[in-house]
């Protein structure tokens, strides 16, 4: 027919067409799969709950409360001077970490209240938390003392908007 199609049975030409078809189809399938994969990620109404504002005014020293952030429990503890002193003088046991590295302000401990072992919510006990599932004990810095949990309680990103307002979910540092 035309001059550039000298040999329509040229195997190289055929291989080239096969490869191009395969590549285009592969890219197309991947591109088509993406919206479906993405649709399983948190939807916008879920993402809108990705930060939680907490009023700290009512919490006297020694008191704590649990708030929900992204559906997860977050322990907030207003620590007494005695508690701060005890915590800053120890390094923890299993997963040593200085208390100063675990808080923005020494008065306020903010940790995610999910046991690092298998995801239960530890209960508040004297001088810390104790997980009812498999017996992991945490101190007032959220550090693991004993039990099967591998590491200290995780810290959420947070910042203080004012002296008495805490925003969990965003961190300026």
């Amino acid at each position: 027919m035309t001059d550039d199609v000298k040999n329509p049975d040229d195997p190289e030409r055929r291989d080239f067409l096969n490869t191009v078809t395969g590549v285009v189809a592969g890219v197309g399938v991947c591109a088509a799969a993406w919206p479906f994969i993405s649709s399983m990620n948190p939807s916008r109404d879920v993402l809108s709950q990705s930060s939680t504002e907490v009023n700290l005014k009512d919490l006297k020293p020694g008191e704590g409360k649990t708030v929900a952030w992204q559906g997860k429990p977050v322990f907030i503890l207003h620590r007494t001077d005695q508690q701060i002193e005890n915590m800053s003088s120890s390094q923890g046991v299993k997963d040593p970490e200085a208390d100063a590295e675990r808080v923005l302000k020494p008065d306020w401990l903010v940790v995610i209240g999910i046991c690092t072992h298998l995801g239960c919510v530890p209960n508040r006990v004297k001088d810390g938390w104790f997980c009812p599932c498999h017996g992991s004990a945490y101190d007032n810095s959220g550090r693991i003392l004993h039990g099967p949990a591998p590491r200290n309680l995780d810290l959420p990103p947070y910042e203080f908007l004012t002296d008495s307002t805490l925003l969990i979910g965003r961190s300026s540092t």
Binding site: P35, F36, S38, S39, N41, S43, R44, D45, V46
Partner: peptide
Amino acid sequence: MRDVNYGWLI
């Protein structure tokens, strides 16, 4: 339609 990623498309 509004919240789910690509929900409108699906």
